[in-house]
Design a protein around this nucleic acid. Structure first.
Length: 492
RNA sequence: CGGGGUGUAGCGUAGCCCGGUUAUCGCGCCACGUUUGGGACGUGGAGGCCGCAGGUUCGAAUCCUGCCACCCCGACCA
């Protein structure tokens, strides 16, 4: 393992790539654009999953599982959705291999084994799910239907980056059906709220809730609600989306229900998802030039204990103290790892756990045993403090909250200092290059202007925020009237 | 898919122009010993179809052709 990470200052993008690999979160695989998520990275993902899953269930959803493959005829049923994803679909055309008669020991696709109908590997599951829902929904009594699935999807991206954009990724996708439009809209915004709460309370990552413009909307949706986060390099990251799908899929798949009055009506739909991209967001929000910085609520180990000793007797004595501390911390709900490996020295371990972002490190050595103390180091501030036996448990329990809150506060502060209100297009262009971040500006509401800005500056409208700032003004580009400010940024 | 670049041990690399002993160095790995409060040291050792396939040559990591993979910049995107 190399000793030094590229710094964020030197090359933010390189820093990110190196960090993901060196911190053992993931690596590139033998398959183009697909990653292997390593145990340490997967442990963080599992923590995210566990909390999100809990939140979904608390809001009335149930999990189910639908097939990986979608027959082409189903996939194309909802035109806009199909068109939006068509360019990046993997397609299964054959179902058998055979020995290659020309190349001994090699296999080839059996030309006789062509599928009657091609199977699309799901880039998202609306099609197969709505085909299924048709059989599940007859009456208003069957509604609302609130389903989530944890799955992998494939989008054949040209350029990929670990976690941020991979050809295959893990996610959850909620798919709900409702009797009324207002109920579906409420569901979509409710799940946006769930995502925002999760991002802020667990990832310690502040997000802006908003709605996408026409051009950025999900293919097949009426409205896309988004949460947008700001990374340390001033670029925005779309962290989760929740779509109000109107009756588009109900019509495409003919999903009707009988109302109380006995009339047949199309159901109203939503879908919503977050992916392993959140792992990338987590890394880029908090980590520093020494490595990962994990919020305690998502860290696989919240505390690591490193023993310091010169001989077996000291090791035994230190271990005893470590085990006792571990027992007490665990009884308070703190997850602890005691790294008693004799194969690495303490200094090596200190660096290792800084790289891996463990929130709190406790060192115990002979001096501590003598004095009845522990050395406690915080990953977020990189500060050390010697604590006595009597206070350490309470202090560490409190530190979990303190670190969580500190990370959130730092991220909020970064976002605040990198969110700029601009009045003119020149100012916008200048500060976009010099400073980056979010820009709150007036826009005339047309796709042409949005496109022009994107072409000229690479910045896009991240969202129309759902805050209560409704002051009207004039578009910074065209001078035409604008109902309210929208949020621009360069994005991942 | 366009433009540029790179493939040598697990990782990072030298050698390539100008073909010629046994392919360089560092990290890591293995064994033993000494070490252990911020990435220890010594001694010994293992590890290579030089991206793949063909060609030129007495001889190819080195020259030629084709292919593949990866990286960077564009277009596309959670």
């Amino acid at each position: 393992m190399a000793k030094n990470l590229t710094t964020r200052e030197e090359d933010y993008s390189k820093w990110y790539n190196e960090l993901v690999i060196k911190a053992d979160l993931a690596e590139n695989s033998a398959v183009r654009g697909c990653m292997v998520i390593k145990p340490y990275g997967y442990a963080i993902w599992e923590k995210m999953q566990a909390e999100l899953d809990r939140m979904f269930k608390e809001t009335g959803h149930e999990n189910a599982y639908f097939p990986l493959f979608v027959p082409k005829s189903l996939f194309e049923a909802e035109e806009k959705n199909a068109e939006g994803f068509a360019k990046e679909c993997a397609v299964v055309t054959h179902y058998r291999l055979q020995n290659d008669p020309d190349k001994p020991g090699k296999l080839r696709v059996d030309p006789e084994a062509k599928l009657e109908e091609e199977l699309v590997v799901r880039p998202t599951s609306e099609a197969i799910i709505w085909k299924t829902y048709k059989g599940w929904i007859q009456s208003y009594r069957d509604l609302p239907l609130l389903i989530n699935q944890w799955a992998n999807v494939v989008r054949w991206e040209m350029r990929t980056r670990l976690f941020l954009r991979t050809a295959e990724f893990l996610w959850q996708e909620g798919h709900t059906a409702h009797a009324t439009k207002s109920e579906a809209v409420e569901e979509a915004t409710k799940m946006q709220d769930v995502y925002a709460t999760f991002a802020e309370n667990f990832m310690a990552m502040p997000v802006v809730k908003g709605v996408k413009t026409d051009s950025e909307r999900f293919a097949g949706a009426e409205d896309t609600y988004t949460i947008e986060a700001l990374m340390q390099d001033g670029k925005a990251l779309q962290a989760g989306t929740s779509h109000f799908l109107g009756q588009n899929f109900a019509k495409a798949f003919d999903v009707k229900f009988a109302t109380k009055e006995g009339k047949q009506e199309y159901v109203w739909a939503t879908s919503w998802g977050v992916s392993t991209r959140l792992m990338g967001a987590l890394v880029m929000t908090h980590s520093d030039d020494k490595g990962l910085v994990l919020p305690p609520k998502l860290a696989p180990h919240q505390v690591v204990i490193v023993p310091i000793y010169r001989n077996d007797e000291q090791f035994d004595a230190v271990s005893e103290a470590a085990n006792e501390l571990m027992k007490q911390l665990r009884s308070k709900g703190v997850s602890v790892k005691f790294d008693n490996r004799d194969t690495h020295k303490p200094g090596w371990k200190f660096n290792e756990y800084e790289l891996k972002g463990v929130p709190v490190r406790v060192a115990i050595g002979p001096k501590d045993l003598e004095n009845g103390t522990f050395e406690v180091a915080r990953r977020d501030t990189l500060t050390k403090e010697v604590m006595s036996k009597d206070v350490i448990i309470d202090r560490i329990v409190n530190l979990m909250d303190e670190i969580q809150n500190n990370l959130f506060a730092k991220a909020i502060d970064h976002r605040a200092t990198h969110t700029t209100e601009v009045e003119s297009y020149d100012e916008f262009k200048k500060l976009l290059e010099e400073k980056g971040g979010f820009f709150s500006a007036h826009w005339d509401g047309t796709e042409e202007t949005e496109e022009q800005i994107k072409k000229e500056t690479k910045a896009t409208i991240r969202c129309i925020p759902l805050d209560d700032d409704n002051a009207s003004g004039v578009c910074m580009v065209t001078g035409k009237p604008s109902a309210r400010r929208v949020l621009f940024a360069k994005a991942y």
